[in-house]
Nucleic acid binder design. Structure first.
Length: 588
RNA sequence: GGUGCGGUAGUUCAGCCUGGUUAGAAUACGUGCCUGUCACGCACGGGGUCGCGGGUUCGAGUCCCGUCCGCACCGCCA
């Protein structure tokens, strides 16, 4: 038997017991006559001790131990003379009688500690060592807990977990597909699913009226801290449901996760917000409502003062930053530069300082103090506050203000990662006009149904009408991050055909791409809808992190590489030939 | 495709603006001392392709150009 206990479970009541432990050497402390060894495994750290009563042989063995050596030890649990309340086993130690070296280890390239000295790149290359560290272990434990809670909850609600294939058909629109060449079908390709969207809809047709799957999805797009080319969704679909049914079930699921994983209770219903309000008041389709600082439109208040910045544009909006009147000229200049960066894209930043000694602004030349007073009243600014105003084209300016709002929220510590503010965003536009292509795109995906009350407009041929059609779709937003999204689907083949027509697919196109689905819908498709949660993001938010990488055991880097496996990589010429692929000479 | 920041001992960084002796700190590693440590302590020691290529210069870690790599962001992500 390799061990009788783990390194995290021995306590004062075990004193006197003969035990066998196995694990990794975290650290050795040699004190001359006596030595301490910290032995680590997944469960914790146990201190081992060698003193004057121990044999010479044991001392010599202990001296040879290096960091991360794998050892097995035998000894007796003893109460410590000086206790360590920082670890769970801190009341006891093991008086060693035997050390068995199971495997030596090279000195790791970075320290295996909570605050490692290694940089990201290095730790990524040695991910298996990084995973030994507590923070990553905690992250993966959280992920495991979340997955178990999701399964338990959905199972209790009669959902069936059904696996869908990874080798499927390429879908147009949406993200770029990862493709897999078919050896047996020369020149043809599978695509890896961006999500099992159509498949789960087919399961609804098949009568599995409550389906879920914790499933890997693939998108060949550029990465971010919260975006990986392969990521995991909690993918769900239900039949015979309306939007409210979906809200009920999945709000309960979220609450269950909050309760069982974080011990946070939500007694109220999650708030809901229309897409239009989200854009108007938060400049984002995924508002962070942990803090206020809402956007106020002040176009009519600021126009007509012979100030071209305001008069020549259709929109002006402002946010009130509480307690920021003390911002210095230098800070405001820096902030102006910040909003003018291409990433934010504002053309200007006007400020009004509501200080004790009076209201001062960067546009005093054009506005009387009465005018400024009106703006403070309209925006609700109080003494000590700072109003930041951006003017320009409406949608762009709202987004810029939204970006500024988040930045100010960060600077003023209003985005506490221990506080959770869930939100449903709904009533998205169904269609988005692409000026360049001169056609509509589905904002969500082409199987999203229009809201029933907008069906008339959906059948109109006027662009303006179509632009106003709302989708029966919804996003689940947590702390400014889109965590879930879904919709009530189209189950009527006439509506689906209309959708394809609006999107400019010919009958043949639609048939080639989605024939299987269109066909299936002719055999009795139930009304259905669903939602998919970005599981990695859900976990990272629960863990209070911005990046999802720590919640994935083996993630890819910024350029989509796995630096540990060193891949993507070239394959053999013979493999290429088998797959009917032309080889590209490797770059020198 | 674009913007910003970074690349110097095993590791994390300083040095670069303002070019000039033997490139420095901390940590890790090694050796010795140390009987209650737990960020142990003390002493000594080894350790460098300053990412790569080119240019300017009497002289480049430092200035210029190019390039590669990493991170964050914009575009993109139905």
């Amino acid at each position: 038997m390799y061990r009788t206990h783990t390194c995290g479970e021995l306590r004062a009541e075990n004193v006197g017991q003969k035990v066998t432990l196995a694990g990794w050497v975290q650290k050795t402390r040699k004190m001359g006559g006596m030595s301490f060894i910290d032995l680590r495994d997944r469960y914790g750290i146990t201190q081992l001790v060698i003193d004057e009563s121990s044999s010479k042989e044991l001392n010599q063995q202990a001296e040879k131990l290096g960091r991360e050596f794998v050892i097995q030890i035998k000894g007796v649990v003893a109460e410590r003379k000086s206790k360590n309340n920082k670890i769970s086993t801190g009341d006891i130690e093991i008086k060693l009688s035997e050390i068995i070296l199971l495997n030596p280890a090279l000195t790791p390239p970075f320290t295996i500690e909570d605050e490692s000295d290694g940089g990201e790149e290095l730790r990524a290359k040695y991910r298996y060592l990084d995973l030994r560290r507590n923070p990553l272990k905690k992250a993966l434990e959280l992920r495991h807990r979340m997955a178990q809670e999701v399964r338990k909850f959905l199972d209790s609600k009669n959902f069936m977990e059904i696996e869908t294939p990874y080798l499927i058909k390429s879908t147009p629109e949406g993200a770029r597909d990862f493709v897999v060449p078919s050896r047996m079908n020369p020149g043809q390709f599978y695509a890896l699913p961006q999500s099992p969207q159509q498949l789960k809809q087919l399961l609804m047709v098949a009568g599995y009226d409550r389906y879920f799957q914790i499933v890997r999805c693939f998108r060949d797009e550029d990465l971010r801290a919260d975006r990986q080319p392969e990521f995991t969704q909690i993918d769900c679909e239900m039949s015979f449901v309306e939007r409210e049914d979906i809200f009920t079930v999945f709000e309960d699921m979220a609450k269950c996760l909050f309760k069982n994983v974080l011990d946070i209770e939500f007694s109220q219903k999650f708030p809901r917000m229309s897409y239009t309000d989200a854009m108007s008041f938060y400049g984002s389709d995924k508002p962070d409502i942990r803090f206020g600082m809402k956007i106020n439109e002040i176009t009519s208040l600021v126009q007509g003062h012979d100030f071209a910045v305001f008069d020549n544009v259709p929109y002006a909006g402002g946010i009130v930053v509480e307690g920021a009147a003390s911002y210095t000229r230098k800070q405001l200049d820096e902030l102006t530069e910040w909003v003018k960066r291409p990433q934010v894209g504002a053309k200007n930043l006007i400020y009004i300082r509501f200080a004790q000694e009076g209201i001062k602004s960067s546009v005093d030349k054009f506005f009387t103090s009465e005018d400024l007073k009106k703006i403070t009243l309209e925006t609700g600014a109080k003494e000590g506050d700072l109003i930041l105003i951006i003017a320009g084209q409406k949608a762009k300016t709202q987004i810029a203000l939204g970006t500024l709002r988040i930045e100010m929220g960060n600077r003023f510590g209003l985005r506490d990662n221990k506080v959770f503010a869930p939100l449903w965003v709904c009533d998205f536009p169904l269609l988005e006009w692409d000026e360049e292509m001169g056609r509509f795109y589905a904002m969500h995906h082409p199987f999203t149904s229009p809201k029933p009350e907008d069906l008339d407009k959906f059948y109109s041929d006027k662009k303006e009408d179509l632009e106003q059609v709302c989708a029966n779709a919804y996003d689940f937003v947590l702390n400014g991050t889109e965590v879930g999204g879904g919709s009530i689907r189209i189950h009527d083949s006439a509506v689906q055909e209309r959708m394809f027509k609006v999107l400019g697919f010919s009958k043949e196109d639609a048939e080639y791409r989605f024939g299987f689905l269109i066909n299936a819908f002719k055999y009795g498709a139930p009304p259905h809808g669903g939602i998919a949660f970005g599981f990695d993001r859900f976990c990272s938010l629960f863990g209070g992190q911005e990046t999802i990488r720590d919640y994935i055991a083996f993630p890819k880097n910024n350029t989509g590489r796995d630096v540990m496996l060193d891949t993507p990589s070239l394959i053999d010429e013979s493999q290429m030939d088998e797959l009917f692929l032309k080889s590209i000479a490797p770059k020198e």
